[in-house]
Structure formats: structure tokens, C-alpha cells
Design a protein around this nucleic acid. Structure first.
Lengths: 156, 156
DNA sequence: TCTTGGCTTCAAGTTAACTTGAAGGATTAC
DNA sequence: GTAATCCTTCAAGTTAACTTGAAGCCAAGA
């Protein structure tokens, strides 16, 4: 099973999968999600550009950093369409993601600082606990509405 | 729709829902997940202890901090079974969660520090990018196996 | 010639953390 | 007494990020 060369014009999905470590099914899924736009050859098979490997690598890294596919798609949308993205293009995206990360880290630190005074104090009273403030809540995973705690007095 | 008092012995699920802000369905789900263990009255209706409100509040706060239900269940399992948990019990749990949070924050900061050198450098080469190290990856959401990037040379 | 392997599409399954709805029993309010 | 709530269980739907499987096309090697 040697690394396949370029068949017609462009890389096969299998080759790209091998190179990135992604499953072919994942790469197809990313296409459905608008993260890559490969060409097709006459047989209808996908053909990828070399720069798509970097694109997909960016997707993987960003996911590791905690970004969602829609967020990543939005970032990728700022890359040039008709020119292969260069160092400056990626650097711009990196700066923006870095700022978001900084914000998330700060938010986590704020939550952490409140932890001791809230659960740690043993009261957990709805009216005094700062952690009940929904604005401070980190991004919650999973669907469905999240209800915000009421603020009624209680002598639990 | 006044706040209902305690009917037989213990709080109804509707009352607890109102007090915590959780949906009744969520509270039942938490029971399925082993996070609360209400009694039942003769009719088979759930009856909660006052301390269950604090328990459920803890669940909500912990979720806001990014902990999963299994993690929260594990923490709650350390509370005393036959005695109403007191300040010291909650403080112990708080300290442990705080330590986990500190670790996660440190991990995020490490990732953030690498961001500029990785995406920002514009190379995104698999062989040089430190962010490809799977050990550094933040917790990924969603099911299914996550494939780790290979490390083959490339002049993308 | 045949079979092996990669490619295609499309439908359905997976996990987490729930919600929604159906069908029916219990409780409360008047 | 009866209607309006509230409660019960159980099955199925929801989102994200995929995987798995079915059914079929196409080209290369034994």
C-alpha cells in the first residue's frame, strides 16, 4: 500500500486522508459542511489541491483548540478564493483565533476564582452564589434550551 | 401558581423544578443518571429532600464549569449517604474541582502559546507543528474515534 | 475473466444531555 | 363531583461531528 501519486489532476480523497490522518468519511463530511471544495474528475471522483491538506490541517488544529466547525468555516471563509493562501493569510486567522482563546481562558479563570466562594462556602444558596450568573457561563455543549436559575430566597 | 408547600413528606418534582430553574424532565433525567435519588410516596410520585436542591444546584454550577454528568456523579458519590452533607463536604469537592479547572486552564494556555508558531507561521507542516501533538489536545466533544495526525514529511 | 480496491451516494447509527409527546393515574380547587 | 393540574412511564426527537453499511461504478492486476 504505497502512497498513491496524483492520478488525473489533483489528489484523491484516499491520499489526502492518508496525509492528514483524517478518515475519508470525515473529509466528505467537511465538504458537506463547506470546509473544503474539491474538484471532480470525469468519473465524479473528488480531486483535491495540495493546499487543501493545509486547510484540513487547520480544521484539525482548530478543533483541538475547541472551535466548532461553523466557527472554523467562518475563519476559512476569509482566505482568498482564487489564490493559494500564503503565510500572511494564515497569520491573520491565527491572530483572531488567539484573541478568542485569550477571552475563553480569561472567562475560565473568572469562573475558577468564584468556585471556592460558591460551592466551597457550603451554602450554594441561589441568592448569593455568583456562579449562578448565566452571563458567566462557559459555552455549554448539547442541544436544547438551558434554563437559567431563578433567584428566590432560600435557607437551605 | 403559588409555590407549593411540602405535600406528604418531601418536595414534589414541580417544586424542586421551580426552585432550581431546572425542567422536571431534566431532574428525572438526572435521576436516571444517578445524580439524585428521591423517595417515592404511596402513589409513586417522587419526593425530594431539601438537600437535593443544593445537590441539583451543584450539578448546574458544575456543568457551567464544563464538567460532564459522569464527572459530576463521581464527585457527588463522595458526599455522605446517611447524613445531610455539610460545609466541609462541599468544600472538599470544591477543592478537587478547582484543581481540575486549574489544570484545564494551564492546558489551554499551553495550546494558546503554540498557536502563533503553528498556524501563524503559515507553514502548518505536519512535521513541525507542535499543535499536532495529540497529548496536548483539549477534550474533544462528540462521539466516534478521533484520528491522530500522521507525521510524514511534506512541502505543502 | 474475475476479483480486489478505491471511489460514489444515501440512509441510518453513535454520544451527550436533554426535550417532547402520548397515554394514563393522582391531587387539588371549586 | 368534576375539571384543571400535576404526576407517572416510555418512546422518539434534537444537535454535533462523525462512522458504518448498503448498493453500485470503474480500473488495474492475477
Amino acid at each position: 500500500m504505497p502512497v498513491r501519486p496524483l492520478p488525473d489532476r489533483g489528489l484523491t480523497i484516499g491520499y489526502v486522508a492518508e496525509r492528514t490522518g483524517l478518515a475519508s468519511s470525515a473529509i466528505r463530511y467537511y465538504e458537506d459542511e463547506g470546509l473544503v471544495r474539491p474538484d471532480r474528475n470525469d468519473a465524479g471522483h473528488r480531486r483535491y489541491a495540495r493546499s487543501d491538506i493545509r486547510r484540513l490541517s487547520f480544521v484539525m488544529i482548530s478543533q483541538g483548540l475547541g472551535f466548532s466547525l461553523p466557527e472554523i468555516r467562518a475563519a476559512l471563509a476569509e482566505l482568498p478564493e482564487h489564490r493559494t493562501p500564503g503565510k500572511a493569510d494564515w497569520a491573520r486567522i491565527s491572530r483572531r483565533f488567539g484573541a478568542v482563546l485569550d477571552e475563553r481562558i480569561a472567562q475560565m479563570q473568572a469562573l475558577r476564582a468564584r468556585l471556592d466562594g460558591c460551592i466551597g462556602c457550603g451554602c450554594l444558596s441561589l441568592k448569593t452564589c455568583a456562579l449562578y450568573n448565566p452571563k458567566d457561563k462557559a459555552r455549554v455543549r448539547g442541544p436544547g434550551p438551558r434554563y437559567v436559575m431563578g433567584d428566590r430566597s432560600d435557607e437551605i
